[in-house]
Design a protein around this nucleic acid. Structure first.
Length: 432
RNA sequence: GGAGAGGUGGCAGAGUGGUUGAAUGCGCCGGUUUCGAAAACCGGUCUGCCCGCAAGGGUAGCGGGAGUUCGAAUCUCCCCCUCUCCGCCA
């Protein structure tokens, strides 16, 4: 949500911001409706003021006939008040949905670009492994090592559904647990378990609606939505609250199942674990003071936690600064991490083997405004919080680089050191 | 799923149509007092929006929304939430 006052004063900022994100918005129409709304409010309030004054006079009149006469005179004024209030409501109702569509303008550090192809690689970590044998894809490994079952998944739930099996399911739990433990025990994040079935207000408040409605599963009988990320629960946790500055920053982490319809991706990444309707994700959220520098600091720090996890898993990755056309409606800035997945590499582009595994977003006030999430400063002023979120790890997608990078010539897969404590210290998944 | 009770300011808790943004108590902040503290006493203590450089003024808010009325925390309707009992159940 955008500050209507700021929009009023700097319409160009928001027009430009929307243009950079490749979105069409009706700024002029909103400003026009806003003017109507303010005028209606002024009319209504001055009429109401008069009505309140008269009513107080009536209350004082003791003599019945005089009272009756005074009340009779009020009819017209009451009608005018009602009409003015109606105009105010209509103007407001017309403006709100349009205002919800205005995107957060991209921050200055976001490179210009129309889509993901113009994202910028910031840096890389780790060297992609050179195989002395023909490496298998995670799908082939999954089959030969009996780690996953896509056929059964499709029978039960349709395309993009799967079963994880045996060590496949164990690794899935292990990597989530590693991520969760790192964040809670080492990074000082508060563990939360969040609702994944939520009301519309939570989806709108976190900025997923109206834009992402078609990506979301809807449970009609109860008018609830299945969340595509724990970001919704973590960020909306303090919805409608005024926190104290002294309790900020709030640092939360949760593992949740994530549901995504993946509408409009037909034919894209249809095979394997890369793009699925349901997965589990360990997500980190920070709610901090209304301070751009602090937000930027947290953004880098949260990104660093995800990098640390990948480094512990010894998986090569690269960090991407997403361009204006790829950061979405709600973000001021977004950095992705792409992890090396050998099977995705094709000859035409050697770098194509990097697949997105993480996404770190900085939203400033955008979500906080929609959520009415504020804090009282030490100066007693009330301000909107800033919010940020980032993947710690999402599985089973992360199983792709794990299985593919750790495979051996004999068809077995070595279990990364960091995961062994979570699988009974098993070292290898061997061919049966 | 059935039956009932209830949702008022940071908390507790009055208030059933008329100067009620809301008594009272607690808490919190400031002051007096004290060597200091406690106690006592005095004063202050919600938020959104609009107008205004400001001081200030207006308006809205008693779970949310709609309605009745000259006037609603108080009356009516819908929704949400909490609690109690019964039923069902991972």
């Amino acid at each position: 949500m955008i500050d209507i006052k700021d929009l009023r004063e700097n319409p160009e900022k928001y027009r430009k911001g929307a243009e950079l994100k490749g979105l069409d918005v009706e700024i002029a129409r909103i400003i026009d409706l806003d003017e109507q709304r303010v005028r209606a409010q002024q009319e209504f309030e001055s009429l109401r003021s008069e009505q309140n004054k008269q009513s107080k006079e009536i209350a004082k009149i003791k003599e019945p006939a005089a009272k009756k006469e005074a009340i009779a005179k009020m009819g017209e004024l009451a009608g005018n008040v009602k009409a003015a209030e109606e105009r105010l409501k209509i103007a407001d109702a017309a403006m709100q949905p349009l205002l919800l569509q205005i995107p957060q303008p991209p921050d200055d550090d976001v490179p210009l670009g129309k889509d993901a192809s113009e994202n910028v690689v910031l840096y890389r970590w780790g060297e992609p492994r050179r195989f002395e044998f023909k490496p298998k894809s995670h799908i082939e490994l999954g089959e030969s090592l009996d780690l996953m079952d896509f056929k059964a998944g499709a029978n039960l739930a349709g395309a993009r559904s799967y079963f994880l099996k045996g060590m496949g399911a164990e690794l899935h739990q292990a990597v989530l647990r590693l991520a969760f433990d790192m964040m809670t025990k080492e990074k000082g994040f508060t563990a939360l378990s969040v609702p994944v079935l939520v009301r519309e207000i939570a989806m709108q408040g976190t900025g997923f609606f109206p834009a992402g409605r078609e990506q979301t599963y809807y449970v009609q009988a109860d008018e609830l939505y299945l969340t595509g990320t724990a970001e919704v629960g973590l960020t909306a946790y303090h919805m409608n609250e005024t926190l104290e500055e002294s309790e900020l920053p709030k640092k939360y982490v949760a593992v949740s199942t994530c549901f995504r319809r993946e509408a409009g991706t037909y034919g894209k990444d249809t095979a394997g674990l890369y793009r699925v309707h349901q997965f589990d994700k360990c997500e980190q959220v920070v709610i901090c003071r209304n301070d751009v520098e602090e937000s930027k600091k947290w953004h880098r720090e949260m990104l660093g936690f995800s990098e640390e996890l990948l480094q512990r898993l010894k998986l090569p990755y690269r960090v991407i600064q997403c361009c204006t056309g790829d950061i979405g409606v709600k973000n001021a800035s977004m950095m992705d991490i792409e992890t090396w997945m050998p099977s995705r590499q094709h000859k035409a582009d050697p770098d194509s083997g990097y697949g997105e595994t993480h996404s770190a977003s900085r939203l400033y006030e955008f979500q906080a405004r929609r959520l009415n999430l504020r804090y009282k400063g030490t100066d007693a002023k009330i301000r909107y919080c800033h919010t940020l979120n980032n993947t710690v790890v999402a599985s089973p997608r992360i199983l792709i680089p794990i299985l593919e990078n750790y495979q051996n010539a004999d068809g077995s897969v070595t279990i990364p050191d960091a995961l062994r404590p979570y699988v009974g210290n098993q070292e290898k998944i061997a061919v049966k």
